[in-house]
Structure formats: structure tokens, C-alpha cells
Design a protein around this nucleic acid. Structure first.
Lengths: 209, 209
DNA sequence: AAATAATATTGAACGATGTTCAAGATTCCT
DNA sequence: AGGAATCTTGAACATCGTTCAATATTATTT
């Protein structure tokens, strides 16, 4: 009972890789079971032996994308000894760069929507939370007066704000903005947000004396 | 040659309204030509006498949504005489409230993606630009040192940042955050961004003396 | 007002798609 | 080696958006 399972596992991996490549090349809407089957050399029905449905396959690709994104964000603050403020700027720019370099795969993370009745499996939800931790530590250094809960919320807000700038900035619909200009804007607004938050906390802490 | 055209025009309007209601109730993916045809009382093929394809229909609904959103943002700063800073906060909260109250229609604005070859018609692109103008005026009052071009870019960045917070905040995927908490977060981060931007500009202008 | 031309509407049909499942091929255990 | 268990297959199904020849309706002409 090993030969069959080995083959299955190899095919499973090939399937996920083929799906990743297909999304990267043709977008989430370009992912077709028959093309996938032809690509990995099996019947189209066989896809459903490897994966429950397309939703799971998309989530599996999303998991890989999130992992690579996590690596990119980790790498962003490795070089030198950036201040917490500059670390946050670097993370934001790394997020922007990753999205630009992996446009379709990054879009798929947010475009995909499960059927209303089915719910996202645990392993997928868990992946998504990990991103905020990159922001959490520098933010904690910058805003020492805040509780862990407050910091978690603020970290998510900061991430969301940068995500919005990247999302609308990379959208062709609105005025196409060149990538360097977008990076400059992101860096500027991140610094402004941080300064504004720190000033507010400093004032609150002074008033408490 | 008037009887036929009148009927057509009435049906066209009914079609767009039916599509709007259907998206609001079942989401963009729940929009089906056969259901629309049954709803407005015509053959499913007749939909293509009223509208080129589903893309156009979705854009027409989007146009209506953008118009209502514009109204909501206009209304936000009408009452009282808010300072520019508070006007921007109100606009951001109005955006959040509109998105929450029109969740599916608001999502459709950003979920929809044209086929790669076809391009968005002019009348639809034009609509989208108008939103930034609400932000432009208060921002110009707060950052007097900036050129119109700089203000336009910053206005778009501010809008994008708020959009990101609303988009990820209303997403069920991530930790579901209650609406009042989201509104508080948005107000806080908008104030922080404005303060940070103003402080930066003030410092630059002082250095120029 | 009747006949004819022009136009609009219809709904069956097409091609694509995700998904299922009985039949056939393969693998595993004794 | 042979039978049981399992896996793979690809044809079939349901559902889409979209098209188009046939039909019904409206407009124009005599």
C-alpha cells in the first residue's frame, strides 16, 4: 500500500506546483481543472483524488504564497540594525515589492472567496495570522505604553493601511502609478502614521503624570 | 420606431436594478443571466439586447454604487463646521459605514476584473476618479505647503490606506472585528496619519526659513 | 387599411466549466 | 498466483455565458 500512495503524493505536489504556475501566468480565473490534469499527466477527474475541490487547491497555493511572503518580510529587516521606525518602513516596502513581483499570486490571496456555506479550514486561517508578528515587535518598541491587545490591533491596522496602498496602487484601473513613486508614497505615509501614533501616545502619557 | 425603444429602455433600467439587487443579496458570483431574465420577464437571450455582456452590466451597477458612495461622502461633512482634520475623519468613517451597509455592492466594485483583452470603458473609469476630490480640499487646508500634484497623490494614498483598513476589517477571514472597534481604529489611524504628515511638512517649512 | 419591409424578441443550442461515479486497471495481502 | 481492496479513468451531468436562425412585432409604403 505504498506504491499507490507515493504516486499520489508526488502527483499532489505536482498539482499544487502546476496550479501555482497557472495562477501566476493567467490569474486565478485562468485556473482550469482540465489544463491542470493535462499538465501533470492524469485524467481530469483524478484531480479530485488529490484535492477535495478547487477551493482547497487555491488555499494550498495561497499557503505557499504566504510562506514566501513571510520569508520576504523576514529578510527585509535582517540587514543592518534598522531602528524600529525604519524596520517598519522596510517591511512595508518589502510587502509592496513582493506584491509587485508576485502580482497574480498575491492577488489570488484576496480575490478568492469560499462559497458562503463552506468555511475556511483551520490550517489556512492559521497561516494568515503570522504576518502581523513582523509588525508587532518594532511597533511594541515604538509604542511602549500600549498593551499587547492594543498593539495587536494597531499592527493589524498598519498592515491593512499599507495593504490598501499596495492594492490600489498596483491596480491598473486607477491612474497607473509607477512602482518607484508608489514605494516613495508608502514610505512617507508609514513614517507619518508612526510619528502620529507615537506623538499621540507621548501626549497621553505626559497627561497621565 | 418609439414603442420598441421605450420598452427596451424600461427593460434596461429594470435589468440594472435587478442586477443591483441580486448582487446585494447573493454577491457578484450570484449574478446569473437566467435569473435576471426571469426577474424582469424576458428571455435569457434578451439580456444581450439590453447590454453588451455581463461585464457592462456589472460596471453599470458599479456606477450606481459609486454615485451613492459619493453622496454618502458628501453628506459626511455637511453637518456642523468640522475642522479639516475632523472632516477627513468623518469621510473615512462614512466610507467605512457605507461599505458595511452595502457590503456586497461595495465588494463588487473591487472584485470585478475585466478579461485581460477588453478594456474598461471611459464612462466607468471617469466615475472612479471623483472620490478623491472629497479628500483633496480638507487635505489642502491641512498641508498648505504642498503642490496640487503632491496633494492629489497624498489624497489617493490616504484613501487607499483607509480602504485597506475597511477591506481587511470587513473581511470575515481574518479575526472578525466588530464594527465599532473598526471605526475607532480608523479614526485613530487617520488622525495619526494627518498629524504625522502635518508635522513633517511643518518641520520642512521651518527648515526652509 | 392591407401589404410589405425592417426590426426586435425568443429560446434552443453551443462550448466551457467544476464535479461525480460506475467501470476498468492496478496494487496489495495471503 | 489469485482474489480482495483500492485507485484511476474519462464519459456524463448540471450550470454557466453567449450566440443566432426562426418567429413575432413594429414601422413604412401603397
Amino acid at each position: 500500500m505504498t506504491k499507490a500512495l507515493e504516486r499520489r503524493e508526488k502527483l499532489r505536489i505536482a498539482l499544487i506546483q502546476a496550479a501555482e504556475q497557472m495562477i501566476a501566468e493567467r490569474g486565478l480565473a485562468g485556473l482550469k481543472t482540465r489544463d491542470l490534469a493535462r499538465e501533470i499527466g492524469c485524467a481530469n477527474g483524478a484531480v479530485y483524488n488529490l484535492v477535495a475541490d478547487l477551493d482547497e487547491l487555491i488555499l494550498r497555493v495561497g499557503s505557499r504564497t504566504l510562506f514566501r511572503l513571510d520569508e520576504a518580510l523576514t529578510l527585509a529587516t535582517r540587514a543592518g540594525e534598522p531602528s524600529p521606525r525604519e524596520a517598519l518602513v522596510r517591511i512595508a516596502l518589502a510587502y509592496c515589492d513582493f506584491a509587485a513581483a508576485n502580482l497574480q499570486l498575491w492577488r489570488a490571496l484576496f480575490e478568492h472567496r469560499m462559497a458562503a456555506d463552506k468555511l475556511v479550514p483551520d490550517w489556512s486561517v492559521h497561516d494568515q495570522m503570522q504576518l502581523f508578528r513582523h509588525i508587532y515587535q518594532p511597533l511594541a518598541a515604538l509604542l511602549p505604553g500600549r498593551s499587547p491587545e492594543q498593539l495587536g490591533i494597531t499592527a493589524r491596522s498598519l498592515f491593512s493601511a499599507v495593504h490598501g496602498m499596495v492594492a490600489l496602487g498596483l491596480e491598473q484601473k486607477l491612474v497607473a502609478v509607477p512602482l518607484p513613486a508608489l514605494r516613495k508614497e508608502i514610505a512617507g505615509l508609514v513614517r507619518a502614521m508612526i510619528d502620529g501614533l507615537a506623538a499621540r501616545d507621548a501626549k497621553a502619557s505626559a497627561a497621565a503624570d
